[in-house]
């Protein structure tokens, strides 16, 4: 599917007096899209609207070209990994997954085969016949993810799949999401773990107070923040000389040294021009540059700028 997989026009959702989502216009294309925002931003509301659990108060939403609420045909093409535990403690992972696949509409034998396959994918084969009540947080998360990917959905919606996981489990979940994309499916990933989301996603949608603050790649969104100068940290042999040279340029807002004088913190309104001219200044001032980093080019920095 080449067009947008999710289109929302004037999408709003109230819970009584509480506003969950406020007239959102959105187009999400294929690949892995991260849905980022603080608590109460409207991420879960958007996820529930996408997965057809709730109806919009106003506006429209189309997922894979169809309205999701109570749309059985569409819901058969979507996989949903919820944030809540949502598991039956007395059931084993195998029984739960078979049961989930039967609810998905698979025949008994197909459900069994699919379950065996997906248990291998999430590396739970050994523990598959134990009741879920004895599972760790990571194992539970993998069971939830397994039930959402087992039927090979065209769109996987994962609500906080990385929350509370140890690094190994996070890596596994990340790998599963990448594999899901590799087989041609699309992923909508809602998360708070920004540094984990960043390498996984192609694009992000930033939400706050029920509104979309921005969408695109992290770099694209950082470029939109024109009123926030870009920060660059330079470690050089003669940082004072370099600072004097930099301050002569109009596009350099400030240049400040660390208390120990080892690093130079520069703020610039035009990062591209800064990087282009830096080699010339280094030659002019004969200050060998040891390292160069831009601490606010990360998703976390973009998130902080946009939300605060």
């Amino acid at each position: 599917m080449s067009g947008p997989i999710i289109i929302a026009n004037g999408l709003a959702r109230w819970y009584g007096q509480v506003l969950g989502l406020n007239r959102v216009d959105l187009e999400i294309r294929g690949g892995i899209t991260g849905l980022i925002g603080p608590n109460g931003a409207g991420k879960s509301t958007l996820v529930k609207l996408v997965t057809g659990q709730i109806r919009p108060s106003t506006g429209k939403i189309a997922v894979l070209g169809q309205t999701p609420f109570a749309n059985r045909r569409l819901l058969a093409r979507i996989g949903y990994c919820p944030t809540d535990d949502a598991l039956y403690e007395d059931m084993s992972a195998r029984t739960f997954l078979e049961y989930s696949m039967r609810l998905q509409g698979l025949a008994r034998t197909d459900a069994r085969t699919t379950t065996t396959k997906v248990l291998e994918t999430v590396e739970l084969t050994d523990a598959a016949d134990r009741p879920v009540r004895g599972y760790s947080k990571g194992m539970r998360q993998r069971v939830k993810l397994a039930q959402s990917i087992a039927h090979e959905p065209e769109l996987l919606v994962a609500d906080e799949p990385l929350a509370g996981l140890d690094p190994l489990a996070r890596r596994l979940v990340g790998r599963i999401l990448q594999e899901t994309r590799a087989r041609g499916a699309h992923v909508l990933l809602s998360s708070h773990v920004l540094h984990e989301v960043e390498p996984l996603t192609d694009r992000i949608v930033l939400l706050n107070h029920g509104r979309i603050l921005g969408q695109g790649s992290v770099a694209e969104m950082r470029d939109l923040l024109v009123h926030h100068p870009r920060k660059v940290v330079v470690r050089a042999h003669r940082p004072r000389a370099l600072a004097c040279r930099l301050l002569q340029e109009e596009f350099v807002v400030s240049a400040a040294l660390d208390p120990d004088g080892a690093r130079l913190h520069v703020e610039t309104v035009d990062l591209d021009l800064f990087l282009e001219r830096l080699p010339t200044w280094v030659c002019d001032t004969s200050c060998g540059v040891l390292s160069l980093e831009s601490p606010d080019a990360s998703l976390e920095a973009v998130f902080d700028y946009m939300v605060t």
């Binding site: 659990q53 919820p82 809540d84 609810l103």
Partner: peptide, 10 residues
């Protein structure tokens, strides 16, 4: 929260 698993299925 198991109902969300049902309502997001066909």
């Amino acid at each position: 929260g198991a109902h969300v698993l049902y309502f997001s299925r066909p």
